[in-house]
């Protein structure tokens, strides 16, 4: 009933990324463990179809090759149902999974400290998780602002540099 067992702020760098296992389509699931050994960009967003989310996901779709160059995968996460994600992904021709944080509603967003109780949606939040499952960068954008991809790329770049050093 309360959210006191959940973090009240977005999880900070250095924290282990909480596990998840969410539907990406009505009959397929994606879990954090699926990305073991790979870097993962997690983009929480309020809702499929809304203008800013659409711009943001379309941008990430185009930047996907750059993420992959840093050995990073990308997932989008919102409280929408998998059927909604399927329609949205088809409409925008998205080439990365959208995960349905639908039931229990917003639970993964809560675990990452980015659920907005007031609106019943996730905040617009970004996490970059390293190969070992540790959060290395997190950022919560004002909900009306598309955060772009520069922060993610800077984080991935510094992770790649550290690994090379």
């Amino acid at each position: 009933m309360t959210t006191t067992e959940y973090p009240t702020r977005a999880l900070e760098p250095g924290t282990a990324a909480p596990g998840f296992d969410l539907r990406s389509t009505p009959d397929q699931s994606v879990s954090l463990a699926d990305f073991g050994g790979r870097r993962l960009v997690m983009a929480f967003y309020p809702a499929d179809w809304s203008p800013i989310c659409t711009d943001q996901m379309s941008l990430y779709n185009e930047v996907l090759p750059e993420f992959k160059r840093y050995a990073a995968e990308l997932v989008g996460i919102s409280i929408d149902h998998a059927w909604c994600h399927v329609a949205f992904a088809q409409h925008r021709n998205l080439h990365f999974p959208l995960l349905a944080d639908f039931h229990p509603k917003g639970e993964v967003a809560q675990r990452y400290g980015v659920y907005d109780d007031g609106t019943g949606m996730s905040k617009r939040a970004l996490f970059v998780v390293d190969e070992g499952g540790t959060i290395r960068w997190s950022y919560v954008s004002p909900v009306g602002v598309n955060p772009g991809a520069d922060g993610i790329l800077i984080a991935l770049e510094s992770m790649a540099r550290e690994k090379a050093a």
Partner: peptide, 12 residues
């Protein structure tokens, strides 16, 4: 051009 845009905070 695209990359320089992404790095400069072009978000749409």
């Amino acid at each position: 051009d695209f990359s320089s845009g992404v790095r400069s905070g072009v978000n749409g």
